[in-house]
Amino acid sequence: MNLHNPKLIRNIVIGSGFAMWAISIIATISFWASLGDSAGSSGLYIATGLVISVIALIMLPISVYAWRADKIVAAVFTGVVWLVLVGLMLVAEFGFFSKSQDNLESQKNVAGLPYQAAKARLDSANQRLASMSNNANVDVVGLSTKRDALVAKKTTLSKELSQCAKNHFRACINPKKAEIDAISTEIAGLDSQLGSGQGYKGVLAERDAALKDLQASAKAGGSNESNMSPVFIYGERLTGIPAKQLQVNLMIVLAFVMELWGSFSAALLMSDILDSRESDVVTTANNPVATAPTQQVAQPVNQQPAKAVFSPQPAINYGGNYGYSMIPPTPATPTKKP
């Protein structure tokens, strides 16, 4: 790059500025579109974003134009409007960056091991629950109460059996034993039902736990540093600044550069156009050949060269309408002839 070639630098600034402006428009439109909940509202948001982008771009050049035309109030007003619109654009750009980072981290989180493990547990629990659906209606509490009562009854019968005389088979031992056997069979049946019911409840609890883990994993996705770019994580180790903060800082710098560089280059372009027009006017005014055919104002003898001053309203047309006026030439004091 030739440092002594300001025109090249100016062209690069203007070119890169407009490229930045185009990028910022794409980014902000993407953000505005995401705010709408239907095609119509998204379209409205996009139109609003486009209008704001265009007005924000032209406000600073207008402010420069007004300032150089000595219209200070208009310059300040357009400058303030530019600041407000740039603020809005900055919010939209930062919104775009935040949203894209959140989406990226969510994608990484979904592909991550904790999320996949929780999802596998949930899927497995759901499959087992589907195969145990006939146990869903088992009244575990009622069956348990019934079983407890039967166990108590069996204990009582066993006690009574032990108190039977050793030769009272028909009157005491055999009936008690038969009753105990019947109760034991009933308890075994209840145990089987209870096992199925409790197994179903266990799988249900497992599914709930997996679901909670999955929700926690999805919720932590945005704030989990392991899903961030390693550059931010190593940046945190080197600087001590939290990775999330580093990410936010980078997004803020990018948003400022995108927005301010576009406006700055537009203002530079406007300033450059005004400069070239002023120099054109001066050249034209000092070139009698070029001005002669269209000269409409009679120049007094001994007229001093007119001073070119920028003004948006053309007062006198000097051949081409450049949007400039010349200060009406002040009559010079006639020089005395010797």
Binding site: I26, S30, S100, L104, Q107
Partner: peptide, 11 residues
């Protein structure tokens, strides 16, 4: 690597 869609990657 910061982009999650082709559009954001391009930006």
């Amino acid at each position: 690597s910061l982009g999650n869609t082709p559009q954001s990657r391009l930006i």
